[in-house]
């Protein structure tokens, strides 16, 4: 029973209720920083960290916080963790911190985080909240990375540019490039590219869902007569 519950929470976070593709929350950072794969991944990981800690805390104090004051309390908790993450990134990933700039403090305004605190963590036990935070965070990070990779590849013909910012010197050889000849499509790196790219990702998800559900219908249709007593 409990296993199924965790499974459902994980699947919801990663796919069925993906914050970027289905709930369409947290679009501001999604649009603004996904011009390269590394930027998207960096911000996604920072968001996941904040989400995990805020879900844990909110879930931990859920019996003591009165409903009337819950939102200010959630905001304080999230703001504290964002400040901590910002200072940590400034210390350990300074170059990436400079590139992401204002969007690290702006994690505090990411509706996905307060959304999960309100909709999930304030009503569920700590372990379930942790699983929820991780799956929502990973789902969000995946979309950020895919969109970032897509825009980087189309926009400037590279992939993993600036990987050392996140992974250290070991990643300096990771960068793939189409070469100097590639002219670059500036639009993909500019904000319209993010909107168009996200539109295609959502369309892709809907196509996959449609295929899956029509296959499920076919399977039940095919197995039903066989299972029925004749």
């Amino acid at each position: 029973m409990a296993d199924i519950e965790y499974r459902r929470i994980t699947l919801d976070g990663l796919w069925h209720n993906n914050q970027a593709l289905v709930a369409l929350l947290g679009l501001c950072p999604l649009m603004a920083v996904t011009n390269t794969l590394v930027n998207g991944l960096g911000l996604g990981l920072a968001t996941t960290a904040v989400l995990l800690m805020s879900n844990l805390s909110v879930s931990g104090i859920r019996h003591w916080v009165r409903a009337e004051v819950r939102l200010p309390v959630f905001v304080m908790i999230i703001a504290s963790f964002v400040t901590a993450v910002e200072l940590l990134m400034n210390a350990y990933f300074h170059e990436l911190y400079k590139i992401l700039g204002i969007f690290i403090p702006l994690i505090v305004t990411n509706c996905a985080i307060i959304g999960r605190a309100e909709a999930f963590a304030s009503r569920n036990p700590i372990s379930a909240s942790a699983v929820d935070a991780l799956s929502i965070g990973v789902g969000f990070t995946l979309v950020l990375s895919v969109l970032g990779g897509l825009r980087e590849f189309i926009g400037q013909g590279t992939l993993f540019a600036g990987a050392p910012l996140l992974f250290g010197d070991i990643a300096s050889s990771w960068e793939l490039s189409l070469g100097e000849e590639y002219p670059g499509v500036l639009l993909a790196i500019l904000p319209p590219g993010a909107f168009i790219g996200l539109g295609f990702l959502i369309a892709l998800k809907n196509i996959i869902d449609k295929r899956l559900s029509s296959r499920a219908v076919e399977v039940t249709a095919a197995t039903a007569p066989a299972g029925a007593p004749s």
């Binding site: 002219p183 499509v185 500036l186 639009l187 993909a188 500019l190 319209p192």
Partner: peptide, 8 residues
């Protein structure tokens, strides 16, 4: 507009 912004 797409071309102008992409390949100025």
């Amino acid at each position: 507009a797409f071309l102008l912004i992409s390949f100025p």
